[in-house]
Each structure stands twice: as structure tokens, then as C-alpha cells.
């Protein structure tokens, strides 16, 4: 069976693989036999090999080097390009983070290939499904040149185990000077949260301008915590300083696709929809019966969030 290279996306500092990696391994099986590629500082692969095998990696290529971490994107593209030329895989599948898309782009130039970003599904003939224009249009597309490279949008595929050998193969990494131009001087974490990561969460509760203040976002956090959910925000809420930018959902923020999305005090502008339209179930709480968010909602409450949300939170907590 044809080999498909899957780039593993890892959590920082020995935190294991991200769920997106398991999704990519699952999606890659449509095209052939997945092999995982682990790129990171020395010692990275040891902690993740088993889960990669469990999710279908016949081979785990281990490309460990300080250089891979010390410089932005370019070294990773270089190592992948080397593997593509050695293994001639049927395709390459990469989780669709900002870094993942940039690796895909550079790999496309290096290998003379086409690439498709943010795909939500890959069929066995290589056809990819993408959601265009804020999710309003569903597109089928194909790479027509070289080795097809896909970046897979998070939460669009359900990870399924498929135990495989996970045979470890060490890759010699020799990063060229050309790929060492942009030094990562420091990685700074500003917000630590005990809540699930926004793009991975199965429930997201988002607040908009209607929440009215930063302090009042505690109402959103309260509901989120009662549901074990991640917190999101509209751009208006972010621009007003109610909540940090990294929680913004929408066209210029995160794209989420959870089982349940609760939009609180959000009008439902097209750019906001872009980031949440594909959620399985959508609930809206808004005092304006005409708010466009209700067009998307499976369930809507017309009411004041300041009364509805705390009361709902209390009831949910009481059921536990």
C-alpha cells in the first residue's frame, strides 16, 4: 500500500501529540498507509511513538535536532522535503495550524507540488473537501501537480485507533544555513488556562459585545466551566478589551467545529460565522429576536444574557 506521510503536531514541552495529529493519521488512511513524522528537539519522539502507532502509523520517522526548534518553519519544511524525495509518498497530510500551513507551502515549492489548506475530508481518490467563504460554500478540489499536500482542519475528522507497527526510523537531520535565518529567541506563554484548548474542545461557549465588560465575561466562563467547555469571544468583544485575542472565533480568529457552540450576546456577523458555522449544534442567547445568529441556531433563547446564563449555569451545576 502507498505510504502517506503525516506530520505530527506536538504540544509544547513534552505534552504529547495534539488531537489534530490523530485526526490527520485517521484521514490519511483514505490514501494509503500512514507514516508519522516527528520533528522536534532530541527526546521528543520517545513520549509519542506509542500513540502514533495506535492510530495507524506503520513507521515513525524520528527527525530530532535542536535546529528544528531553534528556527522558524523552514527547517521542518526542509526535513519533510528530504523525506518526500526519499520515500516518494502518495501524499503528505499536515495538521492545519498556522505553522502547518506554512510548512505545507514551503514543501510545495521545494517539491514542485500543489497543496490544499484547511481541508475537512480527504477521499480515496485524493479529492479534498474545503469550506470556502466563511463556510457558506463547500468545495471539492484536487492537487494536479506533484505530491499532493493537504493541511487538515482541526475537529473535522473523528480520530479512530487502528493499531500498526510504529517501527521507528531515525532520520539524519542536517539543517542548511538557508533554513536558519529566523531564530526563535523565546516562546512566551501569556495565558495559561485549565479549560480545554479552543480548537480541540467539544463544547465552546463564546461571548460577544453583548457581554458588555471584561468583568462580566465571568458569566461566560461560569457557563463554560459548568459544561467543561472552552471559552471563545467575538472580535467586537476582543476589540473592546473584554477578552484576549487568542480566544477570538471567526475569520481572523480561530475556526472551531465543536459538538456544541453556544453564542452569547453575539449578533452573528458573517466573519464570526466563518469560525463556527460547521459546529454540530448551535445555541444562541441574544436579546434581539432579529439577530442573524438565530438563523444558524438549532436552539435560541431570546432574552437577557445576564439573567439567562447565570440561571442556566446554576441548573447545570445542580444536575451534577
Amino acid at each position: 500500500m502507498a505510504e502517506v506521510l503525516v506530520l505530527a503536531e506536538l504540544n509544547p514541552a513534552g505534552g504529547g501529540v495534539r488531537k489534530t495529529t490523530l485526526e490527520a493519521l485517521t484521514a490519511a488512511r483514505a490514501l494509503g498507509e500512514p507514516s508519522a513524522v516527528v520533528l522536534g528537539a532530541p527526546g521528543t519522539a520517545a513520549g509519542v511513538k506509542d500513540v502514533l502507532a495506535e492510530y495507524g502509523a506503520a513507521t515513525v520517522y524520528v527527525a530530532e535536532s535542536e535546529d528544528v526548534e531553534a528556527y522558524l518553519v523552514a527547517p521542518k519544511a526542509e526535513v519533510l522535503a528530504q523525506l518526500v524525495s526519499e520515500k516518494s509518498p502518495a501524499a503528505v497530510v499536515i495538521p492545519s495550524s498556522p505553522e502547518g500551513k506554512e510548512i505545507a507551502a514551503r514543501l510545495a515549492i521545494k517539491t514542485g507540488s500543489g497543496f490544499l489548506t484547511d481541508v475537512t475530508e480527504i477521499a480515496s481518490d485524493g479529492t479534498a473537501t474545503q469550506a470556502a467563504f466563511a463556510g457558506a460554500t463547500i468545495v471539492h478540489s484536487q492537487v494536479t501537480v506533484g505530491t499532493p499536500i493537504y493541511t487538515l482542519r482541526g475537529n473535522s475528522v473523528t480520530p479512530e485507533p487502528a493499531p500498526a507497527a510504529g517501527a521507528e526510523q531515525t532520520v539524519d537531520v542536517a539543517v542548511s544555513d538557508a533554513a536558519k535565518q529566523v531564530r526563535v529567541v523565546e516562546r512566551v506563554v501569556e495565558q495559561k488556562s485549565n479549560r480545554p484548548e479552543l480548537t480541540e474542545a467539544s463544547i465552546v461557549v463564546s461571548g460577544g459585545r453583548g457581554v458588555a465588560s471584561a468583568e462580566n465575561f465571568s458569566i461566560i466562563e461560569g457557563l463554560a466551566d459548568s459544561l467543561g467547555a472552552a471559552v471563545g469571544a467575538s472580535r467586537a468583544a476582543v476589540d473592546s478589551g473584554f477578552y484576549p485575542h487568542s480566544f477570538q472565533v471567526g475569520q481572523t480568529g480561530k475556526t472551531v467545529s465543536p459538538q456544541l457552540y453556544v453564542a452569547v450576546g453575539i449578533s452573528g456577523a458573517i466573519q464570526h460565522r466563518a469560525g463556527m458555522q460547521t459546529s454540530k449544534t448551535i445555541v444562541a442567547i441574544n436579546k434581539d429576536p432579529e439577530a442573524p445568529i438565530f438563523e444558524l441556531a438549532d436552539f435560541g433563547v431570546i432574552g437577557d444574557l445576564n439573567t439567562v446564563v447565570p440561571a442556566a449555569t446554576e441548573q447545570i451545576n445542580a444536575r451534577k
Partner: peptide, 16 residues
């Protein structure tokens, strides 16, 4: 078509 309810003191209950 989704379901839409107007809160008349029971909005939270219906949501839950």
C-alpha cells in the same frame, strides 16, 4: 428551522 424561545423567566430552564 431551529427552535426559538422567548425568555419569560423560563429561558434558562428550556435551554438546559
Amino acid at each position: 428551522e431551529g427552535v426559538k424561545v422567548t425568555d419569560e423567566g423560563d429561558g434558562a430552564q428550556k435551554f438546559v
